[in-house]
Design a protein around this nucleic acid. Structure first.
Lengths: 195, 195
DNA sequence: GTCTATAGGCGGATAGAC
DNA sequence: GTCTATCCGCCTATAGAC
């Protein structure tokens, strides 16, 4: 048995915290609310976690670590820049679909992290953005992409996948793959029909 | 004198509230914080406003009213569907640049509106989204746009302009017009170079 | 490891002097 | 119309019984 009972319960608390933080925000979620969802009293949770801050920390850095390690894998792939951007868009959509609550918290509530973790999180995000931007820049230099402003392209792509989590429900007449295909079509090919 | 002194001070409170709500969130902003920014004691603000909820209400509905009335104007213009979508993207970017804090609050903190205003806000937003989607759908039917899923195209466009407010600073080597041009290029023309 | 009880602080909002 | 003082409730976190 690799995961102790204590670890399992901790993960239950983390999962419920992500859902509540997403729906009500970090400040709008009380430890009593969370305890109610988990099925214990607020005081009992402190046998499994250190503080409310620590919950936010675990959720935010789990997501940022995933992005950074996946980016490194994609950078190492022997594909076109277009293929790499597609892979990154797919990564964002898959993470949203699989772990949407945590992604939402990492997107919106990171600013409530206490220092020094706040600065560390911002730096991790900046590092990811720089790597993403470098791929766009290289794609432009290679003639694969239009010569647009790199920062504008980066943020347009990054933010375009954000509402997936607010909107997408599996079983809404659109599979995750159709979602990916359509978003990539709009972002890479554009809304307007060529010609 | 059309605006009484009381109204002017109320608008000052609203402007500072939008900035603080944007930076710290609705729940993370106390009336004492706000009073400090405005330059009075918390209790004194209640001569100008009814409650903290009312501040959020005024900010959110000011933005949603603007979107809805502007959409009506754009719908009535005698331009192509492509031109109408461009006009809507420009509207979003201009509002972000001119009243970014309020737009940010309307995007993120609307969920803390108390009923029945919460439902009213959601309905207004849905109405706007339906009007926007109808333009995309008509553009596809007219052959101007690629035959993508309408909801996916709608949310891709709507969310693509959201990070403008987080990223854009006038005097960062990019004018508001260049920003518009680049975003419209990516969204309408696509990142990939044709051919 | 879960509970009850509670400490200690901060929240929104009001009362009433000036 | 602004202030000081304050009410009262909810917050995170801890103490200590079991």
């Amino acid at each position: 048995m690799l995961k102790t009972k204590r670890t399992v319960k901790r993960e239950l608390i983390l999962a419920e915290a992500a859902k509540l933080f997403k729906d009500r925000g970090y400040g709008g979620t009380s430890m009593r609310d969370l305890a109610g969802q988990v099925g214990m009293e607020a005081a009992s949770m402190y046998n499994h976690i250190r503080s409310k801050d620590e919950l936010l920390d675990s959720i935010c850095f789990r997501i940022s670590d995933t992005y950074i390690s996946q980016l490194a894998q994609i950078q190492a792939q022997a594909t076109s820049y277009s293929g790499k951007i597609r892979a990154l868009v797919r990564l964002h959509i898959q993470l949203m679909v699989e772990d949407g609550a945590a992604v939402s918290v990492a997107n919106h509530d990171w600013k409530y992290l206490p220092e020094p973790r706040l600065s560390e999180f911002k730096q991790a995000r900046k590092s990811y953005e720089r790597g993403f931007a470098a791929l766009i820049e290289a794609g432009i230099a290679a003639g694969e992409f239009r010569p647009v402003n790199v920062s504008v392209a980066l943020f347009t792509v990054l933010s375009a996948v954000r509402w997936v989590e607010l909107w997408y429900r599996p079983g809404r007449g659109l599979t995750a793959e159709e979602l990916e295909t359509n978003i990539i079509t709009v972002l890479l090919g554009g809304l307007e029909r060529p010609g």
